[in-house]
Simulated assay, not measured.
Amino acid sequence: MRRAIPAAVALLTVGMLTVGMLGAGKSDPLEGRVAAAPVRCIDIQRSGGPEIVDSQTILYRQSGKRIWKTGPVGECPSLRPFDTLIVDVYGGQLCRNDRFRTVSAGMSIPSATCRFRDFTPYDRVK
């Protein structure tokens, strides 16, 4: 059984654009990578902070070799690039159905709670 950490951990997002929203000079963060089978949990100590791409996509980078792609279960309209992700962390892993909220710049009240989907690893093609 995983034990909840008493306080939520706020992680500042870097904010990225999706393939459909890419402008001139912007690149797809998953370009040149191949998806593997999704997993239920990832080790947050080995991953960088979250990057919110759009309302359906969150990326976690791991050592430059691997990018983990996840998103919310169902709709999460408050999930927007450049927002701060507040994640309820249970132990050393981030798992499917763990809860998160967002806070927009200049705001102090977090959004409604959303939940993570499975985490899909994307590795560089050699």
Rank of each mutant, 00 (worst) to 15 (best):
R2K: 14
A4V: 10
A4C: 02
A4K: 09
P6T: 01
A7E: 02
A7G: 00
A8Y: 06
V9K: 03
V9E: 06
T13A: 01
T13C: 11
T13H: 03
M16A: 15
G20D: 15
G20V: 14
M21W: 04
M21F: 14
M21Y: 13
M21T: 13
M21Q: 15
M21A: 15
L22K: 11
G23N: 08
A24I: 12
G25Q: 10
G25L: 08
K26A: 08
S27H: 11
D28V: 08
P29V: 10
E31R: 15
G32H: 02
G32L: 07
R33G: 04
V34W: 00
A37Q: 12
P38V: 13
V39A: 06
R40L: 14
C41G: 11
I42H: 02
I42Q: 04
D43H: 03
G48F: 10
E51K: 07
I52N: 01
I52C: 00
V53E: 13
S55A: 15
S55I: 04
S55Q: 13
T57C: 02
T57P: 04
T57N: 10
I58M: 06
Y60T: 09
R61Y: 07
Q62N: 01
G64A: 10
G64C: 04
K65W: 01
I67G: 06
K69S: 10
K69T: 06
K69Y: 11
K69C: 05
G71F: 13
E75A: 15
E75T: 12
P77E: 06
L79C: 09
L79E: 04
L79R: 04
L79W: 04
R80D: 08
P81V: 05
L85T: 06
V87W: 07
V87T: 09
V87H: 09
V87G: 03
V87R: 11
D88V: 07
V89F: 06
V89R: 14
Y90W: 03
Y90P: 11
G91K: 12
G91Y: 01
L94W: 00
D98N: 05
R99P: 11
V103N: 06
V103H: 00
V103L: 15
A105T: 12
G106A: 03
S108A: 14
S108R: 07
S108V: 05
S111K: 08
S111H: 10
R115L: 13
R115C: 04
F116N: 09
F116P: 01
R117L: 15
R117V: 12
F119Y: 01
F119C: 03
F119W: 00
F119R: 00
T120C: 11
R124G: 07
R124A: 13
R124V: 00
V125T: 06
K126I: 03
